[in-house]
């Protein structure tokens, strides 16, 4: 019972943060701010989606169901970890590439990196 409620809570949190990330992608004015929205919020949302699956699998396993649920939970945890690492590194690489390609942050207060790179 409590497992079901927790699963729904985590699913709703995950989907809400994914939605906010996409709204930020559509709404923000330049590449870097869009990257803020997508990287942080979709990673967080997908982690919570994975967490809901883990909670569901643990609850099903404790309820005495089939044997596949522990491996489901383990694989989901590994998927979430892999996703968090690759998203962080990938967005850093993208930001660096975009800045090297000459696309400066458009509404910007200060840019200490300008002129430092060759």
């Amino acid at each position: 019972m409590i497992g079901e409620a927790l699963t729904y809570v985590f699913l709703v949190i995950g989907t809400a943060f994914n939605t906010l990330g996409i709204i930020g992608l559509l709404r923000f004015p330049d590449v870097y701010t869009r990257m803020h929205a997508t990287t942080k919020m979709t990673t967080f949302g997908t982690t919570f989606t994975a967490l809901s699956v883990v909670v569901y699998a643990v609850a099903m396993f404790l309820g005495g169901n089939s044997v596949m649920f522990p491996s489901l939970a383990l694989h989901t945890i590994i998927a979430a970890l892999v996703l968090a690492f690759t998203n962080a590194i990938g967005s850093h690489a993208l930001a660096r590439g975009v800045h090297k390609s000459g696309c400066m942050p458009e509404p910007s207060v200060v840019d200490r990196l300008e002129g430092v790179l060759p």
């Binding site: 930020g24 709404r27 923000f28 004015p29 701010t33 942080k40 919020m41 200060v110």
Partner: peptide, 19 residues
């Protein structure tokens, strides 16, 4: 994430690159 969610909804940003 809550901070960025607030910025997504209200649109109040003041971006810049710092060292």
């Amino acid at each position: 994430n809550l901070d960025v969610a607030y910025r997504v909804i209200t649109g109040r940003i003041r971006p810049g690159i710092i060292r």
